[in-house]
Amino acid sequence: MKIVVAIKQVPERDAPIHIAADGRWIEEGDLNYTINEPDAYALEEALQLKEKQGDAEVVVVSAGPERVQSTLREALAKGADRAIHIECDDLSTRDTLGVAQVLAETIKAESPDLILTGLQSDDLGLGQTGVVLAELLGIPHATIILQVEFSGAGLKVKRELEDGWFQHVEMPLPALLTIQSGGNKLRYATLMGIKKAKTKELKTVLAAEASAAATISMERVYLPEKQKKTEMLTGSPQEIAAKIVEKLKFEVRVI
């Protein structure tokens, strides 16, 4: 049994974000990076499956510049067996299809039984990479997964729906799952893990050229702009009240 976990490295949660000079991406120089939280849960799920399964191998894969190696090392320290770094400096200019293509090529060569990724990334939050990746690999997928269980030759998974509803799905292997945060308890990194990680394999491969033309291009990145517009409503009290109701209903849409 081989489980691949696709991991993204993202800026730390409370990092002060500055926009790069060209306005198309953020200033990366002074940021601290960490593992994307849903991916941490995906890794945890993989490690727990391995512990239950016994003879599984967990391979972590991450695309990005050299800095992503620190996140891969952390994953090795937490218990992954092997890591692959897909060297790629233009990640931010690729759309989800482009990123999925980069990942797909490397992951295909591994021919895993199960692929896990986080549901979405903490930085862009597009939530598509996993799904597109499954499509590119031609395997079934399920999203927003809280629990995974092997059953016979396939899987039983629990999906989170809205409003406290869950869906239980059975599916064949190989498959791809996107994991929701909070389904498991994360483990802490240990000294022994870090020491062991030093002896584990971390392979670097070059990303393939984008094989399809990008479907979207980044035009402008900006911080939420504060807008303060004051509009004076005039008229009799009744008229003002009626205007407020209308605005609340149709503009702000809270009633």
Binding site: R13, D14, K185, R187, Y188, A189, T190, M192
Partner: peptide, 22 residues
């Protein structure tokens, strides 16, 4: 037991993760 990950404690893990992250 902590350096080898044998100690499992919900609060302890939460503390360590908080220290690691925040």
């Amino acid at each position: 037991v902590t350096n080898t990950g044998v100690w499992e404690d919900t609060y302890g893990t939460k503390l360590f993760l908080a220290l690691e992250k925040n």
